[in-house]
Design a protein around this nucleic acid. Structure first.
Lengths: 139, 139
DNA sequence: CGTTGACCTTCCAGCGGGGGGAACCAATAG
DNA sequence: CTATTGGTTCCCCCCGCTGGAAGGTCAACG
């Protein structure tokens, strides 16, 4: 099948599929007219990649996961380890975002949001770090 | 003051400060030897930018926030609106990450993680979307 | 006076993970 | 025969920096 069909089957844009070939994630054949020719297994791999990417795995994780998938003798422990590390990355990001969110939500709540120029949001951003007393008082 | 001092005061790497000048966020003077010369106000702006970035605001948001900060006649409503939109972006990302996390945590939990090759993580990634029955059963 | 080393300058490349679009061939329908 | 839809390669662009090369400047030391 051609790249368009592979794109439809896998749900990935053709551009992305070409990119994945470029970086060696898939290796479709070529027909005499120069078109990429995807086997069932290639389309299957692409769908695999799409799902792994949707879970936020990096390309390198995907490469490893794909290799493990192909390896009938893998130990599931290896797969689990990759997933666990990714889970930690996700947890880290969530924690980071939540902290931002908390600070920001607090500031938004404090801000009158009217025609007047007084704005605790700007005041906080402008806060000099030598004003530690102020921070201790308000925190 | 030179870029190194500005970097120390603002907490930003010198590279980043040069970049911020490049994109017009700060406009330090130049002394006769070609070195950038930062006023107190420049260092202050850089610190402002650092804190805005730490809250996850985009560079364009920062540009707007900085302009509002400089504008004594701003309406706090405008600032608040920027912050609220950013808050929504953050909430969106958190939701997305939490969904990933839930899926992934479930799979990790299911996986034995031993020497055997059977792995529900890989099985899920490899799951063909035509297997809708299976998904309905397990969901 | 020379030299060392810390600082500064510019420019160019690259990260991840593709997206947009040009310029060009191939296949097919009417 | 032409129009349309596909495919191909190519290179630049996005964000927000970061690293490195090649070179200029300045203060201190001997």
């Amino acid at each position: 099948m051609n790249i368009g069909d592979a794109a439809d089957l896998s749900g990935l844009p053709a551009k992305t599929i070409r990119y994945y070939e470029d970086i060696g994630l898939v290796k479709p054949l070529r027909s005499s007219n120069g078109y990429r020719t995807f086997r069932e297994s290639d389309a299957h791999k692409l769908a695999f990649l799409g799902r792994a990417r949707a879970l936020g795995f990096t390309i390198e994780d995907c490469r490893n996961l794909l290799a493990l998938y192909e390896d009938e003798e893998r130990a599931s422990a290896v797969v689990k380890e990759i997933a666990k590390q990714h889970l930690e990355r996700i947890d880290g990001k969530i924690a980071e975002l939540k902290e931002m969110r908390a600070t920001l939500a607090h500031l938004v709540q404090e801000c009158a949001g009217d025609h007047r120029p007084d704005c605790p949001i700007l005041a906080d951003l402008a806060m000099k770090r030598c004003d530690e007393d102020d921070r201790r008082k308000s925190t």
